[in-house]
Design a protein around this nucleic acid. Sequence first.
DNA 1: GTGCATCATATTGGCACCAATTTTGGCAAA
DNA 2: TTTGCCAAAATTGGTGCCAATATGATGCAC
Lengths: 199, 199
Amino acid sequence: MDVADDIARDVRSGVFAPGMWLKQIDLEQRYGCGRTEVRRALDYLAQKRLVQHVPNRGYHVFLPDGDRAAHILELRVILETAAVDSVIAQSTAAEIERIRGLARQFDEAILNGTILDQYEANLAFHRGLLGLCPNPELLNLVTELRGRTSSALAGQWSTRARVEQSSREHHDMVDALAAGDAERLRDVIATHIRQPQRK
Amino acid sequence: MDVADDIARDVRSGVFAPGMWLKQIDLEQRYGCGRTEVRRALDYLAQKRLVQHVPNRGYHVFLPDGDRAAHILELRVILETAAVDSVIAQSTAAEIERIRGLARQFDEAILNGTILDQYEANLAFHRGLLGLCPNPELLNLVTELRGRTSSALAGQWSTRARVEQSSREHHDMVDALAAGDAERLRDVIATHIRQPQRK
DNA sequence: GTGCATCATATTGGCACCAATTTTGGCAAA
DNA sequence: TTTGCCAAAATTGGTGCCAATATGATGCAC
């Protein structure tokens, strides 16, 4: 699903505004592919709830729904804090350093990268952390959940203060992980995930 | 997605054995629909991981993977036990009676229903219980996770002892809910979900 | 008799066309 | 000026056809 990823990226980066109708002909030309592939990609994204399908009308970018986003963030809190114990159990010095490196790459993206770079670096950090959990399905699921709410993130991530706080929290997580402090790691993760929903 | 549901039902009920190749022409004739609809349904089911897509080869029903099933069951334990507190908080006498009724309908399905009836009744019970949770996305997610492992269930549910134990556990859950005993409800739910993976 | 290359067959996957439905623009009437 | 209606344009969704690809069988060489 290559075209689907392209569309998803453009949705996340704000090229396609929330609520905007995605005409199949436009997508066909924009990505240089056939109608079949466009339809398949749109169906895929509709199932991932990034776009919404209205029969005989077409597909439009999902409108950000504050309640739904909050609910999905709560699911992420549940899953990611539930993984903490096994993450700490599986962590080695080398792994901790690798994750610290990912936190630093996020800092780097804040300084010199685009919004999308920051998004990717943040994703890489969280994937690196959750990757220690011996349940690979948990990582898959959290990644999928993240994809369901990210369309609204473009605006949320815009302030510098917020991304810098995210950076601090990343390093807090690594420190808590290195200290083997499960309780603190859970707290930091919970506040970190819930952060974007502050009004 | 009507055809997709039909195919899913046939996969769950064992008409299509695990690993079996699903030829588009056969499905087209079996369900009396066009190729387009078959392809959409197969793509949909591939994303739900009920079938697997191999380019230029086709789609075959997912082979049961013990490790993956166990991992997904653990995710269900995490999510469904995490919902317990809010479920108890939201429960009223009327709701508890309604859920007890669903447990009785499962008993009824054991006596007089097919395997598929039992599956549906079990699903209805769990949906009824989780429906009390104020986070609707949690119910959606658990339902989806349940769908990801059910292809292997046909064999697991075959013994009478097992379904009867499931029935007892359902009633235990209702009792714990009525008593407001969160700890016990969590325990019962956890053992109930993990039950099928006993070797 | 066995292994390998080749060819026939069956199946998938994309493309172009066509029908069905919705939206848009214009026109007339109140 | 506004409102309702009708026609035209645009867009979606489905059907049929054809190329690309994998599979299995056949025949040939060793």
